[in-house]
């Protein structure tokens, strides 16, 4: 007798889905990060690279745009002596991911974190949102009640909610591990300095010696996401200019996905 249609039992179906998801996750982790684009502009008046006096310093200005074409704000970029990609290509798969630090978190907390765009619970812009979080997220509710019990002051209990937050690993562990990972990666690639982009997605590397460098975010933006690894030559200083080179870093349009790093 030939079956008319293929019938799966529920456990088999779940197992297949799990395998597929596992396979996707594994491929996402091991896939090489996508390359961010780099455009190096040399302002008028820049002299070609040549040996200069040891005390001469120059500057590089960077502007970074995300996949949506908007300035990429509050992201750290590194000036390196070596290529980040070449320094330790395998390390990207070992980069910490926030979901690894959510053990014991309620589904509501996971959802709240997913909606909020900060590495930790400490972004001051959250303060105005704690009152709502207390109503919907069990961990915030517990922290608030603990604060009320200690301080007998509702406003203070809300303001100091992170102090009494029950899951310490959720609060800052991801940040700490990420920072340590970045430090190590930067060291391997010959860290010169690092900057954080401002509201215009811009930043300066200043006081550097003319010569060859790489500029990178080191940790790919999103799992299997974008990695900038831009080779740049810092030219000798131009009179009346802060920087001798402008590097425009941009992401491939609308390709980033998954959890962010």
């Amino acid at each position: 007798m030939r079956p008319d249609r293929l019938v799966f039992s529920l456990p088999s179906a779940l197992a297949i889905v799990a395998l597929l998801l596992g396979g996707y996750a594994a491929s996402a982790q091991t896939a090489a990060p996508a390359a961010g684009a780099c455009k190096v502009n040399t302002p008028q008046g820049a002299a070609p690279a040549q040996p200069s006096a040891p005390n001469v310093t120059t500057g590089i200005r960077i502007t970074v745009t995300g996949p949506d074409g908007k300035p990429l704000q509050r992201k750290r970029f590194y000036l390196l002596q070596r290529s980040a990609r070449a320094s330790d290509a395998d390390a990207f798969s070992a980069a910490p991911r926030r979901e690894e630090f959510l053990q014991g978190a309620s589904p509501q907390l996971r959802e709240w974190l997913a909606k909020h765009d900060c590495d930790t619970l400490y972004c001051p812009e959250y303060e105005s949102e704690y009152a709502d979080a207390v109503k919907t997220v069990p961990e915030f509710k517990r922290a608030y009640e603990e604060g009320q019990r200690k301080y007998h002051n509702d406003k203070l209990a809300l303001k100091w909610i992170t102090v009494n937050f029950p899951l310490k690993n959720v609060r800052t562990e991801y940040f700490k591990r990420k920072r340590a990972w970045l430090e190590q990666a930067a060291q391997k690639a010959g860290r010169v300095s690092s900057v954080m982009t401002d509201e215009k997605g811009a930043a300066y590397f200043t006081g550097i010696k003319p010569g060859g460098y790489y500029i990178s975010n080191l940790m790919p933006l999103g799992t299997g996401g974008i990695l900038w690894d831009c080779q740049v030559t810092a030219l000798p200083p131009i009179p009346k200019q802060i920087h001798s080179v402008l590097v425009e870093l941009s992401a491939p349009r609308q390709q980033a996905a998954g959890s962010g790093n």
């Binding site: 996949p67 949506d68 908007k70 704000q73 765009d117 930790t120 999103g222 980033a256 996905a257």
Partner: peptide, 22 residues
């Protein structure tokens, strides 16, 4: 760094298993 953005505010598209909640 504590206040660094976790994920830039762009809309993720193109891959089926996007965590759109980000």
């Amino acid at each position: 760094d504590v206040m660094a953005r976790f994920m830039p505010s762009f809309k993720a598209e193109g891959i089926p298993l996007v965590r759109a909640s980000f």
